[in-house]
Design a protein around this nucleic acid. Structure first.
Lengths: 236, 236
DNA sequence: CGTGGAATTGACCTGTCTCAAGAATCGTGG
DNA sequence: CCACGATTCTTGAGACAGGTCAATTCCACG
């Protein structure tokens, strides 16, 4: 289940690393061939089954991850046991940025929603290189800013307005920057946890959208979106 | 209204710079005296009246700010014109981290809620020094992580549960890490925008808390909190 | 087939929104 | 210093969205 590749192989940019967001970044670009010999921390490659967690809140954060394929949810829990999904990670997203702080801990549970492949690399690697390599440094900053923008967007877009609006905005967000309007939905329970509504309300609203043909089911649990009309609802 | 101080004065650590969070950080610590001569970007010091904006969404982000005294809200707007407050900045908080990305723009309106003093410094300064000074680098990362944690907390704590719970959590958050349980409240409208509820609901709930002596008004608009009972409500 | 979990749907109830009308507070200018 | 207009806060009454609880259907899987 855990396939290990050496840094040298990562550097070669072969195969699966094509989609690795850090490959196109300059993480390895500044290193001489000889440097690779000195780094013997392996880069591991995981495959997570749906429902499996990549890490848990409070775990010592010493690794960072890149999502190759699949989707993960980042979850936080309230004292009363209810949960809130604060972000979603998809292809090329980086997880565990908090590992940049020495001695830090993860701030969420990261749980796969689909079969998901991730690359794992030691945070120390990035910490050591980050300061000396301006391009990597910039890339890190940019990632952080993106995470922050996402967090803010979840507040303003996905936690504001009626349930109809929130679900419409969530759907639109799922197909943004995609060629097609096709997407597969999350479980009703997860939708609820993302939007701050109950699973029943999520279910009812999705059902209503289907009746109104705002959502058309092509394959089981795969849908085409009526983007213009969903936009109308989202901004209502 | 705009008082200008030179970097050398900042370095001397006199007067108002005592509370400056970047003073205790290593931003200037790594610089030799002689370096200061070469930096002629002034550090400006502003005083904002309540309701005044420090910057607006979309403005070119070329400066960062440290809050000396007072409070600011970070606001985002929805297409329908409604607003959501996504964060609050108080003493020693840094604003405008997005200026670290070259060519970036501010992601919020930053608006003073009280008479507020801020320091303004060019982002280029931090960009240039950040990479070479490991301590500053670490401090920046830490700030970013803190902002992200705040954003997540606003989702899980302040946008989840009943209005009673949200308001209780907001109140508790206002006095956290404070010696006393005294605090002054925001306008009902701002509370609503922070919690995703209407001003009427905010007002009603605050009034109810007063009746139950969970809030005791000492001076006009200054309150003492019944922390244990508020906690009970917050977690209820 | 039978079983367990998710999704759907219904009926009812309650919290919050909406609209609207007073009360209080603040800033301003006389 | 007071009076006035403008906000903001408070409070009420009614409507409605969404929550709650429960029953049913659907579906994947052994």
């Amino acid at each position: 289940m855990v396939k290990s590749v050496t840094l040298r192989e990562a550097w070669s940019g072969e195969a699966d690393c094509l989609n690795c967001s850090l490959r196109t970044s300059v993480l390895f670009a500044g290193l001489a061939e000889s440097d690779f010999e000195q780094i013997h921390d392996p880069i591991d490659q995981f495959t997570l089954k749906p429902g499996t967690s990549l890490y848990r809140t409070g775990d010592a954060a010493d690794h960072m991850f890149t999502v190759r394929t699949g989707v993960l949810k980042l979850v936080q829990y309230l004292p009363d046991g209810s949960q809130r999904i604060v972000r979603i990670a998809r292809t090329t997203d980086v997880l565990g940025l908090e590992a940049m702080l020495e001695g830090g801990t993860y701030q969420h549970d990261a749980i796969a929603l689909q079969p998901t492949e991730v690359c794992r690399f030691p945070a120390r690697l990035v910490r050591d290189l980050g300061c000396n390599n301006p391009d990597l440094h910039r890339e890190l900053i940019s990632r952080w800013q993106r995470a922050l923008n996402e967090a803010d967007a979840w507040l303003t877009e996905l936690s504001t307005g009626s349930a109809r609006q929130r679900i419409a905005r969530l759907l639109l967000r799922l197909v943004r920057d995609r060629e097609s309007s096709a997407c597969q939905l999350f479980s009703r329970e997860d939708m609820g946890a993302m939007l701050g509504i109950t699973t029943e309300t999520a279910s009812r609203t999705i059902a209503e959208f289907k009746r109104q043909s705002l959502l058309v089911e092509t394959d089981p649990n795969r849908f085409l979106l009526d983007i213009p009309n969903l936009k109308r609802i989202a901004e209502g």
